[in-house]
Design a binder for these strands. Sequence first.
DNA 1: CTTGTCCGGTCATCATACAACTTTTAGCAT
DNA 2: ATGCTAAAAGTTGTATGATGACCGGACAAG
Lengths: 259, 259
Amino acid sequence: MTGQVPSSSSPGAAQRQRARLLRPLGAPKSLSSEVVDRLAEQIMSGKLPVGAKLPSEQEMMKGMGVSRTVVREAVAALRARGLVVTRQGAGAFVDSDAGRQPYAIDPEGLGSLASVLDILELRMAVEAEAAAIASERATAAHVKAIGEAHRVFSRAIASGEGAINEDFAFHQAIAAATQNRRFAEFLDFLGRLIIPRQSIRSFEGTAEGPRQYLARIAKEHEAIFQAISARSPKRARDAMRGHLVKSRERYRELASRSA
Amino acid sequence: MTGQVPSSSSPGAAQRQRARLLRPLGAPKSLSSEVVDRLAEQIMSGKLPVGAKLPSEQEMMKGMGVSRTVVREAVAALRARGLVVTRQGAGAFVDSDAGRQPYAIDPEGLGSLASVLDILELRMAVEAEAAAIASERATAAHVKAIGEAHRVFSRAIASGEGAINEDFAFHQAIAAATQNRRFAEFLDFLGRLIIPRQSIRSFEGTAEGPRQYLARIAKEHEAIFQAISARSPKRARDAMRGHLVKSRERYRELASRSA
DNA sequence: CTTGTCCGGTCATCATACAACTTTTAGCAT
DNA sequence: ATGCTAAAAGTTGTATGATGACCGGACAAG
């Protein structure tokens, strides 16, 4: 590693080099997190099977050469992650459902376009079925709520807003209409990941104006709403799928243009 | 030289003693978890917005009448849950993506039949689309792997086994063929939740024997595999949906009979 | 405006002590 | 021997004090 920059040819190279130098340097790992990593690895890999007793705090202290504070904070972190349970006077044990960890998506990995498209694809799967189920199971109140959300969205775009939240609220109303809380919760989970990525609906350079762009979305929403009102699972599913396929393409274009 | 007086060494001690006497015996909560709950509630509700600084350890100690050990373990737990980040010398702050919590399903709530059916419904949504995508995107190697998984399953049931794992492996192979890691990961997540529920494939009282029961599943798998091999998204989606709808009905019967 | 220094606030770690609880063991009565 | 009880040992939970490392701002010098 010489560190000498070998004749940067392109104009922006120096700036990028600077950015590389100035980047916040790697996290100086705390002792606690090191202990957490080690124990978590042992548990995940199964070397510490479910129900097994972890070494006592004293043993860990001596074995790893750290203070009790460090050990205890590490165990507290493992407990928070649902990997271990502690019983005062008895010890710390691998949690019976340590294998059932929540489904997590690291927001750091969402930088790449492909990663976002993958998530949109998963969302498509869930929402298409949600629309179908909603069309079968929605009460009159649910249908009314969906229609209301649709109207709010339409009104928002008419007044020139981006209407990101109103858009998502329409989808949430459909998920709620399934009367299956998992759909609503999972859509909420995905929304919190994806929505920040499209928070600026940039229309610069598009052939058509924002109005037409958003009007098409509203049109697609309308079709979905009609299908659900008509209690037609097939049409609802197809309408939702079509809507999200187009949304995916719209996002793909948007991202490629800003790159 | 700590307090030789055992009675009231700290200000909050007497109060905690009283609470200990009055609390119902069923809820032995540790002080750390109480602090965690308090802080987590503040963060989730937005009273502590993203980026806000938490009170210092000293302030929390005085404010809640607990020791630094308790406060630090509580903060360690919040950090493990991704709710806060700590910077040495600066303080503890609400994490920028505290709102993007992982998608979790409490295994405790899975006791009721309806709850399990809800999850099966979500799985259906994901797997139906996964089958369709797999039929479009699977490489030759993927198709081969799916076929192999299908054969392993068929062979297992032929030798009289329950073949739970082989069954799931077939589904996993399809999810892997989407080349979208989210599908594989999410299916894995759902599988770890519901598989333990059906680990005993009880056939007592059923009209037909285990062989016929499992043979029908194999038949459905066969149809799915054929559709994917034929690169037909529509057929793959319908076959998978049909398979899971029937699986859901099978589970419903099974549960109602054992009840 | 930049640089260097200082200083109070804060988290990270170590060490010790005691309290509360569990498990094991020793002892005792039967 | 067997079963119960009480002591003992081991373990986690909480409290307290001390020290080091790091951050942020204040301040003066160049």
